[in-house]
């Protein structure tokens, strides 16, 4: 059944303009980092394109900020194409972002494995190829909550996308060629897994009401990043129990080498306070160590979200020296910045 309409309390003008109005504000807040090209509906690096560098482009439905627009800047994305809330950008936008990033060295498309995003990026890549731009696409599918059976849409791209964007962005910034940038991005995809827990639904501005209702005392396991229900609805339990479950889901699927160094990212879904995220991270860090891996890099905060949904998702990437070096490389975006 459709949830009962509740009053929507959001900072909005016309709900239909929410995406555009927010991007205007993003550009106003970070003028040295990025620029909003309203005519094409894309966000580009303020100092780009960088001559001779492989372009790194991503995009997806809005509502998951700071993904992807918050990761545009030196060391990460050259351009991002934001769609409507929870809806893929259209090929025109992706093509414009591709041209904005291309200086002749080719462009990497980082695509989350959602049916709409894959199709729109495919159509854009076909159009870019017609224009003579070399495009490689890497599809991120790190969500262990979805069974990856033949004939299905496969696993969603979740928090692993943030790590692919950072690491591929660093490789491109170092001057690596398109095939090498694509190869390191695929290596991250192969070694990263995520699992999300939802404590509430969320309200898309145009819909004006929550996507689903969650009875008191119940939570959703295995959520994505569009406010949709997860794989399973279960009674709420302690952070300690949830952390154990999240680590078990992720590590069982990833099967890292014993003692492996990992990057652990805990991303809030947008509506969970920092104190709760850190409370949960403390439990996760302990569980990861007990499970025999070592979180040598950590990231806790809101990096890939679902509007104001409460909840969090754990992403674990098994590292090696090259990936650590690319992760540590300088980055300057509105949502991630170090070393510069």
């Amino acid at each position: 059944m459709l949830p009962t309409a509740t009053p929507m309390r959001k900072f909005l003008n016309d709900p239909g303009d929410a995406v555009r109005d927010s991007l205007v504000g993003l550009a106003a807040a970070h003028p040295g980092v990025l620029r909003y090209d309203a005519a094409n509906g894309i966000v580009v690096r303020a100092d780009g394109p960088v001559p001779g560098k492989v372009g790194v482009v991503s995009g997806g439905g809005s509502g998951c900020e700071p993904l992807h627009t918050g990761f545009v800047g030196p060391g990460m994305l050259d351009a991002a194409a934001p769609g409507q809330v929870f809806s893929s950008p259209v090929p025109d936008q992706i093509l414009a972002a591709t041209h904005a990033a291309d200086t002749g060295a080719g462009v990497l498309h980082i695509v989350k494995n959602f049916t709409g995003e894959v199709m729109n990026f495919e159509m854009a890549a076909e159009l870019a190829a017609d224009d003579g731009v070399a495009v490689e696409a890497v599809v991120v599918n790190d969500d262990v909550a979805v069974l990856d059976r033949p004939g299905t849409a496969g696993r969603r791209g979740l928090g692993g996308t943030v790590l692919v964007e950072k690491i591929a962005g660093a490789a491109a910034e170092r001057g690596q060629a398109l095939d090498a940038v694509a190869a390191v991005a695929r290596r991250v995809v192969a070694r990263v897994r995520s699992f999300g827990v939802g404590l509430s639904s969320c309200t898309p501005p145009v819909a004006g009401r929550p996507i689903f209702t969650l009875p008191d005392g119940e939570i959703e396991l295995g959520i994505g990043i569009s406010g949709e229900p997860g794989r399973q609805r279960v009674p709420l339990r302690s952070a300690r129990e949830l952390a154990a479950l999240m680590v078990d889901e992720v590590l069982t699927d990833l099967a890292p080498a014993p003692g492996a160094p990992v990057l652990a990212m805990l991303s809030g879904m947008g509506g969970t306070p920092s104190s709760e995220l850190h409370l949960l991270y403390g439990e996760l860090d302990r569980c990861l160590r007990e499970a025999g891996v070592e979180p040598v890099r950590r990231l806790v905060g809101n990096f890939i979200t679902s509007l104001e949904q409460s909840g969090a998702a754990l992403t674990v990437l098994e590292l090696d020296d090259e990936l650590i070096s690319l992760w540590d490389a300088p980055v300057h975006t509105s949502a991630l910045r170090w070393g510069m």
Binding site: G83, V90, G116, M119
Partner: peptide
């Protein structure tokens, strides 16, 4: 439709 709808419905 390709230019305005987005999502999966636009390409389809």
């Amino acid at each position: 439709l390709v230019s305005t709808v987005g999502g999966a419905a636009g390409p389809l």
